[in-house]
Write a protein that binds this DNA or RNA. Structure first.
Length: 549
RNA sequence: CGGGGAGUGGCGCAGCCUGGUAGCGCAUCUGUUUUGGGAACAGAGGGUCGCAGGUUCGAAUCCUGUCUCCCCGACCA
């Protein structure tokens, strides 16, 4: 056991308040007391425990992932951040293709009339739309440009916030007969939602995502598919991104505008808040009716399709930061790391550099020739000028899983100096280098990357499990729990009677006063045993309640 | 969109109240000395102080407007 077993969690006095809680599950800090190595000089200045929001932003800039763009709510995604997104895209796309979908591309502009067709959809999105009203600029006579009043569009175009309506339009053309079903499509695109309050990766006005859209013969087919894609998301989040999630159905008040059912995967951040990491919707015939997606069934009569849609976005990167990041920066799970192994030669601007580089190049080739986690290992020999010891910290902040520093002594001894990003510090507060032989190190790389991937998931899963509190039997207990665990309370699973309409609204308002939201109804939860903590009626299911991003 | 805070070299900040030659730390470049763990010393380069107006002999500083960012709230597939 390492000295600070949970070095991925900050060790700070304020976190220990939960230890006094009478309720179970609030052990987010229990094993953090003592054993804390305090003489570490961390690679970041902000600490998770001191200011989680400031820490989050420092990770993004220190890891060189993204920066402000000067355009409200929009960001520039830099090579390391975009490289992570490309890895997510690759792995997610493979999974989407493997479930029978083909990629398409639909226009970024949606005619207003087209968008107006589904009432609930309009209701949900109208207040956050970017609208294109002109197609030309003219000089304003003062050296600037203004939209040309004579170039006003007859019908404004909206910039897509999501593409149900325009894809529905296409589906109506593409689907004629039951033989055309199911129609399984996906697109990778940018979307725009005019958000009031933005945060990099978590909620930006423009973001990148994939949106899947499918059409089916029956409600059952479509519902099955909704859950199939939810499972794809769960698998991708957990196996590729090492993000443990809780999959379940959203309550009525959290449904996608126009959906009949909305399902989500929810991940727990290190501050105990929930992040919706992906959603899958069963849309019933709502959009089919709005767009006229009909097919002739086996008996020859016209039927409306049942459709689904589902999406994951660059928000996943925010989740990776807040789940895997530590006080030294990002930690990227190997499967989605643009470079999994970094080789840093200790160059000295001398003639022996040549031999050292050759030694490193041989190592690079040994590693690159192998596979880990089912793919060729991505290894970078970083020859950029500069001291290896200084460059090391850049890669630590970026979160490269394995860093190999190679000096003249290593070359003489036939060794390498190896650092695991997820086990960065040794007991004496120094980087925990190991020095296996070059051949051993190269041969160990597949297993090592596998181990880092697993370790990141296990740490996150352990934390999640330790911070879901069950057995809260009344609203008063819930209020007490969140009153006593104000810093990082985690999630609570409670039983409820699934109220609807106005009764549900009252529950939502009650929770809102505690800054809480209903995340979802977990699939595979324990059976209910008692009464609804909100209404007192017999409970019918369990819900996860949490603060959320 | 409401309340609060902030924008000054790449990054982090001081200066503003009380207008008068744009500063500091880190980073960068050059040189020297170092060389197995985030080098030291010396020198140098880099900013029309978010933007636009206004007041003034003179504005980073005062006034007005505006843009962007951060925090809280409202909103949020």
């Amino acid at each position: 056991m390492r000295p600070c077993a949970s070095r991925w969690l900050p060790c700070k006095r304020s976190w220990t308040n939960s230890a006094n809680s009478p309720l179970p599950g609030s052990r987010i800090t229990s094993e953090l007391n003592g054993n804390f190595v305090s003489n570490i000089r961390h690679a970041l200045t902000a600490r998770r425990a001191d200011d989680f929001a400031a820490w989050y932003q420092e990770v993004i800039s220190a890891a060189d992932m993204a920066e402000e763009s000067g355009v409200r709510g929009c960001m520039v995604i830099k090579p390391w951040g975009y490289g992570i997104w490309e890895r997510i895209q690759r792995l997610m796309d493979d999974r989407i293709k493997a479930t029978g979908h083909d990629n398409c591309y639909f226009p970024i502009f949606i005619p207003l009339a087209n968008f107006e067709r589904e009432a609930a959809h309009v209701e949900g999105f109208a207040k956050e739309m970017a609208v294109v009203t002109h197609h030309r600029l003219i000089a304003d006579g003062k050296g600037g440009l203004i939209p040309d009043p004579d170039a006003k569009l007859e019908e404004p175009l909206v910039v897509r916030p999501t593409s149900e309506t325009i894809i529905g339009d296409a589906m109506a053309r593409w689907v004629q007969s039951w033989r055309d079903l199911p129609l399984l499509t996906n697109q990778w695109a940018n979307v725009v939602r005019w958000e009031m309050r933005t945060r990099m990766f978590l909620r930006t006005s423009e973001f990148l995502w994939q949106e899947g859209h499918t059409a089916h013969e029956t409600a059952d087919d479509a519902k099955d598919h909704t859950l199939r894609m939810l499972e794809v998301y769960r698998a991708c989040a957990e196996d590729d991104l090492a993000l443990p999630v809780i999959a379940g159905e959203k309550p009525e008040n959290e449904r996608f505008p126009g959906a009949v059912e909305t399902w989500s995967i929810e991940a727990m951040m290190q501050d105990g808040k929930a992040l919706q990491a992906g959603t899958s919707h069963y849309l019933g015939t709502n959009f089919a009716k709005a767009s006229g997606i009909q097919y002739q069934d086996r008996e020859g009569s016209q039927q409306y399709c049942h459709t689904t849609s589902w999406g994951t976005s660059t928000r996943l990167i925010g989740g990776i930061i807040m789940v895997h990041g530590d006080d030294d920066g990002l930690r990227v799970p190997p499967r989605i790391a643009p470079h999994q192994v970094i080789i840093l030669p200790m160059l000295r601007d001398k003639s022996e550099d040549e031999a050292l580089l050759a030694y490193c190049e041989e190592l690079r080739a040994m590693i690159a020739g192998q596979q880990a986690l089912g793919e060729n290992i991505r290894v970078l020999l970083d020859k950029k000028p500069g001291k290896a010891a200084a460059k090391r910290w850049d890669w630590v902040r970026k979160g490269a899983p394995i860093i190999l520093e190679i000096g003249g002594r290593d070359m003489e001894n036939g060794t390498v100096s190896m650092l695991r990003r997820d086990q960065l510090w040794s007991a004496d507060g120094k980087p925990a280098f190991e020095t296996p032989s070059r051949e051993q190190a190269a041969a160990a790389m597949p297993a090592l990357l596998d181990a880092v991937q697993k370790a990141l998931f296990d740490q996150a899963a352990e934390r999640r499990d330790a911070n879901i509190t069950r057995g809260v039997g009344s609203l008063t207990e819930l209020e007490t729990f969140y009153a006593e665990n104000q810093t990082y309370p985690g999630w609570v699973e409670v039983e409820w009677s699934k109220p609807s309409g106005a009764a549900l609204e009252r529950v939502v308002e009650t929770l809102k006063a505690l800054k809480l939201t209903i995340r979802n109804v977990p699939i595979g939860a324990e059976p209910v045993t008692g009464a609804c903590i909100f209404t007192g009626a017999p409970a019918v299911e369990r819900i996860i309640v949490a603060r959320a991003y």
